[in-house]
Simulated assay, not measured.
Amino acid sequence: MSQFEVFAPAKVNLALHVTGQREDGYHLLDSLVAFAPVGDMLQLSPAESLSLKVTGPESRGVPEGPENLVLKAAALYGPGPGAAIHLDKCLPAASGIGGGSSDAAAALRGMAALRDVALASGAAVVKLGADVPMCLDPRPARTEGIGEELTPVALPPLPAVLVNPRVEVSTPAVFKALASKTNPAMEPIPAFVEAADCIAWLARQRNDLQPPAVALAPVIAEVLAALSALPGCKLARMSGSGATCFGLFESDAAAEAAQAQLAAAQPGWWSAHGALGDQAAKAAPRLR
């Protein structure tokens, strides 16, 4: 029996500008997204119906019923052979790094491989969540509109440390607290030669959701300060609507050493390190 394994990488908003709001309430975004080599893992095995089992270090509180985006995504393929899906949850929930959306996108890739059909796309995928389309093909991209307008971007690998203080932040509450819903878009994205060039450009951009998120969860400011104080950290910023933050470094060795230092100082925080960039090859379904 065919069993597929699919990696669901963490999504990181390197910059996130809120540029407007539609009449239906959706916010218009201009964001630069890259993916991390850390994430969740899904296993899909043929079955008569759809089912989900969730385990792993971050599985507590993650539902296994039809409200889970993984099952909603798998159901998009309509009637036919089902799948027994096992989600190994390694990313903290509600953390601003697209864990649920990336899991849903991995389920879409896995179901397409399991049934040997075309990958689902279009409005049905967007309805799962604004982040799901960008997670379907986890390569660096500029995302506009509500997140469905994707333009591939070439980025150098960006050594990073990801940190979450284990505080969940409500995305609707962060958007509601946003002082201005109409802000300048990102600067034109240049061709980057190396990580230092990209980091210097990113330093001139923003995450418009960071100030309201810090107001709602002041511990985010503590995380940003801790990252900024690490040796070799060139830029510290929050991802998405929080509370996960990232620090960028110029070498993998510097990021690894910094993450070890932070983990020792703050053992209650979730942290990881790795180079942000293109994770499409790692995220492709693999036959087991």
Rank of each mutant, 00 (worst) to 15 (best):
G96F: 05
V161W: 08
M134K: 03
A191L: 12
D116T: 11
C135R: 12
C135P: 08
L158V: 00
D103F: 10
A107I: 10
A123Q: 15
A113Y: 03
L136D: 10
R109T: 02
A173C: 03
V153S: 11
S170E: 02
A106P: 01
A94V: 12
S95R: 08
R115V: 02
L136T: 04
N183R: 15
M111G: 08
I189Y: 07
A179C: 01
A113D: 03
N164K: 00
R115L: 11
V153F: 11
A94D: 04
R109W: 08
V117H: 02
L128G: 03
N164C: 01
P138W: 08
L128F: 12
P140C: 12
I146R: 15
S95A: 15
A130I: 13
P172Y: 10
R139D: 03
D137F: 13
E194Y: 00
L114W: 07
G122L: 02
L155G: 10
S180C: 11
R166D: 08
D88N: 09
T171N: 04
M186Y: 05
L150V: 10
M186L: 15
E148M: 07
A105R: 06
L155P: 13
V193Y: 01
E148K: 06
A160C: 12
A124I: 02
D131L: 08
V163N: 11
E149A: 09
D137L: 09
K89D: 06
P190H: 06
N183G: 04
G99W: 12
L155S: 05
K89S: 10
I146F: 07
G110E: 11
E168W: 01
C90R: 15
F192W: 09
P133N: 05
A173L: 01
A94L: 04
V126W: 02
R166Q: 15
C135N: 07
N164W: 01
P138R: 14
P133F: 04
L150G: 07
L128N: 13
P172F: 03
R166T: 03
V117S: 06
D137C: 14
P190R: 09
P140A: 05
P152V: 13
G147W: 07
G110R: 00
L108G: 05
A124W: 01
G96Y: 04
V126P: 00
V169G: 11
M111S: 14
A118C: 03
A124G: 03
V174G: 13
C135V: 08
R166K: 15
V125Y: 07
A191I: 10
A130W: 02
A179R: 15
P190A: 14
P152E: 10
G99M: 14
V161Q: 06
A113H: 01
L136H: 09
S102L: 06
D103I: 10
D88S: 12
L128A: 12
M134P: 01
V169T: 02
L158D: 00
A94G: 14
A173G: 02
G100V: 07
G147M: 06
P190I: 05
G147N: 06
P172W: 08
A185T: 14
L158Q: 02
L158G: 01
P138M: 10
P138S: 13
E149L: 15
A106W: 00
E144C: 15
A105M: 12
G110L: 11
A177S: 14
M186H: 07
T143L: 13
D137K: 13
A118Y: 00
A173T: 04
E194K: 15
T182P: 00
